[in-house]
Simulated assay, not measured.
Amino acid sequence: MIRLLLADDEAMIRAGIRAILASDPELDVVAEAADGREAVDLAISHHPDVALLDIRMPRLDGLAAAAEIGRAAPEVAVVMLTTFGEDDYIAKALDVGASGFLLKSGDPRELIAGVHAVADGAAYLSPKVARRVITQFAGGRMARGAAARDRIGGLTEREREVLALVGAGLSNAEIARRLHIVEGTVKAYVSAILTRLDVRNRVQAAIVAHEAGLVA
């Protein structure tokens, strides 16, 4: 069972999202918040697997709440859920350590797929957001590619293999099956990779993998 925290300042929106999540018997909303400060407090007290946060909320916006959750409860994976898809929101969400970014206007199946992916240790961007990220990072690719190759220079051959699979969007369980190792070992590799690359989450690591040419 995947335990969820849902935070949105609009009660009707929360009810709609909760109804979508309830269609999957493996998902359980264990706490709801109407503002960002409450979301942080509930993340600390309830320890959900995934926190779904709206970006624009009173008292503390979703981006600030995500940053605080990352510091106070780093085991909680954060997914930003919003009607806004501007590039600056996407960039800020990735900077504060969000593992997913979904648009409320997207297919409900994306929401369920995203929650499962993030809970399984992967990253998830809605297709529209993924296109924006790819476009944004397309410019200046050669310079960033050289920098990224320098960054991965200190990784072992196995760490590069794991990083390439993270870049391809595979979860820890999928990487374990692909490399014929246990999932706990994959988690240890991913943690080491994030530290060596000085990145906050799998999304940022995946970007490095793509820029370094590890992913076709």
Rank of each mutant, 00 (worst) to 15 (best):
M1C: 13
I2L: 09
I2E: 06
R3S: 14
L6F: 06
A11V: 10
A11K: 08
R14C: 12
R14D: 14
A15T: 11
R18L: 12
I20P: 14
L21K: 08
P25T: 07
V29C: 13
A31T: 01
A33E: 07
A34R: 08
A34M: 05
A34Y: 05
G36V: 05
G36F: 06
A39P: 02
A43H: 04
A43Y: 05
I44N: 00
H47G: 12
H47R: 10
V50W: 14
L52R: 00
L52P: 01
L53N: 09
I55W: 05
R56G: 06
P58T: 02
P58I: 05
L60M: 10
A64H: 07
A66C: 12
A67I: 03
G70Q: 09
R71K: 12
A72V: 00
P74Q: 14
P74V: 13
E75N: 10
E75M: 13
V79G: 05
V79M: 07
M80C: 11
F84G: 09
G85C: 12
G85H: 06
D88S: 15
Y89D: 14
I90S: 12
A91Y: 08
A91N: 07
K92I: 08
A93Y: 02
L94T: 05
V96K: 05
G97K: 15
A98H: 14
S99K: 13
S99N: 08
G100M: 03
G100I: 02
L103S: 09
S105W: 02
G106Q: 04
D107M: 04
L111D: 04
I112L: 10
G114A: 01
G114N: 00
D120K: 06
A122T: 02
A122C: 08
A122G: 02
P127A: 09
A130L: 11
I134H: 07
T135L: 15
Q136I: 09
G139M: 13
G140W: 04
R141P: 03
M142F: 15
R144A: 14
G145W: 03
A147C: 10
R149Y: 07
D150K: 11
I152Q: 02
G153T: 03
G154Q: 04
L155P: 01
T156C: 11
E157C: 07
R160K: 15
E161V: 13
E161A: 15
V162W: 14
A168M: 13
A168I: 03
A168T: 01
G169Y: 14
L170T: 09
L170A: 14
S171A: 14
A173Q: 08
A173G: 12
E174T: 05
I175C: 10
I181Y: 06
T185F: 13
V186T: 01
V186Y: 07
A188T: 09
Y189D: 09
S191I: 07
A192F: 03
I193F: 10
T195L: 15
L197D: 04
D198M: 10
R200A: 15
N201S: 12
R202D: 05
Q204T: 05
Q204M: 15
V208C: 08
V208G: 08
V208P: 03
A209E: 08
A209D: 07
A212Q: 02
A212W: 03
A212M: 03
L214T: 00
L214W: 11
A216D: 09
